[in-house]
Write a protein that binds this DNA or RNA. Sequence first.
DNA 1: GCGTGATGTTGAA
DNA 2: TCAACCTCACGCC
Length: 287
Amino acid sequence: MPEGHTIHRLALDHRSRFEGERVRVSSPQGKFSAGAALVDTQVMTTAEAHGKHLFLGFGPPPRTSDPVRSGAYPDRWIHIHLGLFGKLDFGAGTAQPPTETVRLRLATPDDWADLRGPTTCELITDAEKQAIHDRLGPDPLRPGDDPGRAWQRISRSRTTIAALLLDQKIIAGVGNVYRAEVLFRHSIDPYLPGRDLTRAQWDALWADLVFLMGEGVRHNRIDTVRPEHLPEAMGRPPRVDDHGGEVYVYRRDRQGCHICGAEIRTAGLAARNLFWCPGCQPATAVR
DNA sequence: GCGTGATGTTGAA
DNA sequence: TCAACCTCACGCC
């Protein structure tokens, strides 16, 4: 599930359910009991995402009598990273009975959220949170983040653009689906070294990621196919599988390209499966 | 019931 | 480059 769009959506969902609310925090599974106890019954003041990292801010309830505190500054954060198979489930009303895999449960009288299978669920300070921001690259979903920072590193790198797009120090939030799809949409050979990409290509990739990932947050799903290539527009059968949206190349190896008909290819790259169309993304780099 | 793989990251070799 | 970690859904007995 989780690329950056999922995490930003989760931040929104946490804010709409818990922001400003006094929250019961527990760890039915037990692995986060100590941390949960330290923020239990405090107010969740905000929730924020950077790349694939989710931060839930807790602090004392806002006191209008105190102008500094009235903004309800969080002083403790729950830092969550879903990894490959972490999941968050929300519900209204009384929470389901705890299951032994629920690492973290947030609950108010009206709402609950259950976290399972994260690689990270820890209590951190403001300074520790800042250190995480500092080691992440710009995020297409954080307004104001500067694509030029990523370009600085990409334009000097011999590493392939496909590998660079997954490097969270360079750009935060892109995962295996978006990297394959955005390279396809711009007809870029995934094996092209970063330093052979043009600035215009990078600016176009970034702008497209801002758009695609924004749509991802809105629909809570990855859709990357342009309107003219949708199943209805082309009279082809819709995609049927577990991860939902319409895509051009991701996990479509050995099937025909929607645009040129060539067989989609796959290969391992940096321990992940890469997908591309040899027709639309002809090799410009030496393999 | 068992084996597999998945939209991720880290740290050791 | 590889193993380890976290969980669940699916295909195939």
